[in-house]
């Protein structure tokens, strides 16, 4: 597929979808249901506003969303209380599919949402967005509503990093530019057309979500792109420009951990797909250094990118969503 042609036909700006009435009519005509999933861990300062805005704009005014759910990893602040007070359905991740061994991570919440939420389409929106706006949901949902061949819509932004003198107009996405895009360029050139492969906001059809595995750590977005690409091709992707996303900036050290997790996921995928069959067993310890009163000392982190199987492999899921003879 020609990348420029794909960009032309599969890249959108959220402002194109300003006509909510039309969007809701199109959704209703298709008879699909839509769930919004917000994965959380200690987000009491931002979660309330996010729920209020989505509920007001995309439920009360225009019934685009059928469900707003918070899947929490076990916050120790008032995240769950605040979310429930504004009317979201709040779930503790460990209470969903309790018969399965517990794991913690954002990917775990996203995966369990597939079981817990009822929508034919699920839109995932992070809870740490300071400039939350309805576009973060409808901008991603509209391509799925209007274009049946699209199955997976990613967000992209001009990502500002907060700094001392207001907002810098562009920057960020360091892991994308330094790690993921070079890797995609080497092994999956077509996937480089996805402008922000690591963005935490995306809308996906259930038929896709239930069929792909979920790394529960940093690698979930990268593995999704590779798996959807392999199975459905570039035709299945869309991407929407949501303008700006103001969020917490992460330290270089945190980005190092993130890159380590993504790299693990990527290499395991490459091995499984036969792109790099000779990869030895990977070490799961990331070693970073810090200076303590003039002396260098090593800090080691054990980062294991565990993976959940496709939800369709879980009997309880099949029973709930695909009951057959």
């Amino acid at each position: 597929m020609n990348i420029n042609e794909w960009l032309q036909n599969h890249t959108f700006h959220y402002s194109r979808f300003w006509d909510f009435r039309h969007l809701v009519e199109a959704k209703e005509a298709q008879g699909v249901t839509i769930s919004l999933c917000i994965p959380t861990l200690n987000e009491e300062n931002t979660i309330g506003k996010e729920i209020v805005i989505f509920k007001s704009e995309l439920m009360s005014r225009y019934p685009l969303l059928d469900e707003i759910a918070v899947i929490d990893s076990g916050s120790t602040d008032k995240t769950r209380e605040v979310a429930a007070s504004f009317g979201a359905d709040v779930y503790l991740a460990e209470d969903i599919l309790p018969e399965i061994e517990r794991k913690r991570g954002k990917g775990e919440n996203l995966w369990k949402a597939i079981y817990q939420l009822k929508g034919d389409i699920i839109v995932y929106v992070d809870a740490d967005i300071k400039n939350i706006h309805p576009r973060f949901a409808y901008g991603l949902l509209a391509p799925l509503v209007y274009r049946p061949e699209i199955k997976y819509v990613k967000a992209f932004y001009d990502r500002p990093l907060a700094y001392s003198h207001g907002i810098r107009p562009s920057g960020g996405g360091r892991v994308t530019e330094i790690l993921v895009r070079p890797l995609f360029s080497l092994f999956f050139p077509e996937l480089t057309a996805i402008i922000q492969p690591l963005s935490g906001e995306y809308a996906v059809r259930r038929e896709v979500l239930e069929a792909i595995p979920f790394p529960i750590g940093y690698g979930v977005e990268t593995s999704h792109l590779i798996d959807v690409y392999n199975r459905w091709g570039m035709e299945a992707f869309g991407q929407t420009d949501l303008d700006q996303r103001v969020h917490r900036n992460q330290s270089t050290r945190d980005l190092g951990k993130m890159s380590f997790g993504i790299l693990q996921t990527f290499l395991l995928r490459a091995k499984a797909l036969g792109l790099m069959p000779e990869i030895p067993d990977l070490n799961s310890t990331l070693r970073q250094f810090q200076v303590n009163e003039g002396d260098f000392e090593q800090v080691a982190y054990n980062i294991v990118e565990e993976e959940r199987p496709p939800m369709l492999d879980i009997p309880a899921y099949r029973e709930k969503f695909r009951p057959g003879p």
Binding site: I53, S56, E57, S60
Partner: peptide
């Protein structure tokens, strides 16, 4: 009963 609409309007105006 329209709490979310009121509050969302206040937030969106203020921002």
């Amino acid at each position: 009963s329209v709490r979310e609409i009121l509050l969302a309007n206040a937030v969106m105006v203020a921002e």
